[in-house]
């Protein structure tokens, strides 16, 4: 018995095994894939097709070529403002929100199990409590009794109450703050679990091999061991940072004064719900998607660079 004539038999068995294995794997994937295709892939495809049509949700769609796309940049006054607001919000709250969600998870992870559960509960509380930005409405109320206004008045820092949420130069920064404060959701908790899954033996080995402080440890051990969870956080953060709409709509209304806090997603909802221009709404969604996807690819490369 030499290895030479043993090999072919092995290969045949392997191939057979592989075939039956693959069948099981496809079977495990099937329930997800069938439903995913029905409820997500098909709708996305039809939405992209719809972006080249005029469709009012009642009469039959009429082919419009690239009219919807041209209209955005040429004929729509709100679109450029919404685009710039969306980009400002995404650039400010995206990276900062991600950093906050990661750093706080990392800091919380320094404590024992009991304190850890309590602290992460406190940070996750806004997500558990539901629509919580009303608290900011109380704080930033425009009259003299609003908490911020009355405090500033009593210290003599301002002479008359400021219309925080109506004043275009304050509204957007306030939305940024509220949005950052709300960023402790999905990303935060997935980071907490990701940190739990880092093998503690790596830390021990690191301490022996000359890791001097927690920052070293973070950079050389923690971050490289949870790259794929960080990538999850990046994608979720891109999604939420580019899709901001609920907070500005609740605090400043839609349309806001001078469109100062209108965002693309708010515009999409308005175009679709109030004006029944589904084709145009779909076209804006496609543009928004392209921006998010480009950002994702760029940041994916950055995450891979960490810990080198």
């Amino acid at each position: 018995m030499t290895t030479a004539n043993k090999e072919p038999v092995n290969l045949v068995i392997k191939r057979k095994e592989k075939f039956s294995n693959n069948a099981v794997y496809y079977l495990m994937l099937a329930p997800f894939f069938v439903l995913f295709f029905l409820f997500t892939v098909l709708p996305v495809i039809s939405s992209v097709i719809l972006s080249f049509f005029d469709f009012d949700a009642v009469s039959f769609p009429r082919f419009a070529g690239v009219d919807n796309y041209l209209r955005m940049f040429v004929h729509d006054d709100v679109f450029p403002k919404a685009l710039s607001n969306t980009l400002v919000l995404a650039i400010v709250t995206g990276p900062l929100g991600f950093l906050i969600a990661f750093m706080l998870a990392w800091m919380v992870n320094e404590f024992g199990p009991g304190v850890r559960t309590l602290l992460s509960f406190m940070f996750y509380a806004p997500a558990l409590a539901g629509n919580v930005y009303f608290i900011w409405q109380i704080l930033f109320s425009g009259d003299a009794y609003g908490y911020i206004n009355s405090t500033l008045l009593s210290f003599g820092l301002i002479v008359e109450p400021i219309q925080w949420l109506r004043n275009p130069s304050y509204a957007l920064p306030i939305i940024c703050i509220v949005q950052l404060w709300m960023s402790m959701g999905v990303t935060f908790l997935s980071n907490i679990s990701g940190l739990q899954n880092v093998n503690p033996e790596l830390y021990e080995a690191g301490a022996i091999d000359g890791v001097k402080n927690r920052w070293h440890e973070l950079w050389y051990i923690t971050i490289p061991s949870m790259k794929s969870i960080l990538m999850f956080g990046v994608v979720m953060q891109i999604q939420s940072a580019f899709s901001i709409a609920a907070v500005p709509q609740a605090l400043c209304g839609y349309p806001s004064i001078n469109n100062s806090t209108d965002t693309l997603v708010a515009l999409i909802t308005d175009v679709g719900t109030a004006r029944y221009e589904m084709g145009y709404a779909a076209a804006i969604s496609v543009i928004l998607f392209i921006m998010m996807f480009a950002t994702k690819n760029l940041l994916g490369k950055l995450v891979n660079l960490a810990g080198r």
């Binding site: 995913f36 997500t40 892939v41 709708p43 996305v44 939405s47 994608v235 979720m236 891109i238 999604q239 580019f242 899709s243 997603v265 999409i268 909802t269 679709g272 589904m278 709404a281 779909a282 969604s285 928004l288 998607f289 998010m292 996807f293 994702k296």
Partner: peptide
């Protein structure tokens, strides 16, 4: 990719 597509239009 599907995570990045605006859900309202769907």
């Amino acid at each position: 990719m599907s995570l990045l597509y605006n859900s309202y239009t769907l």
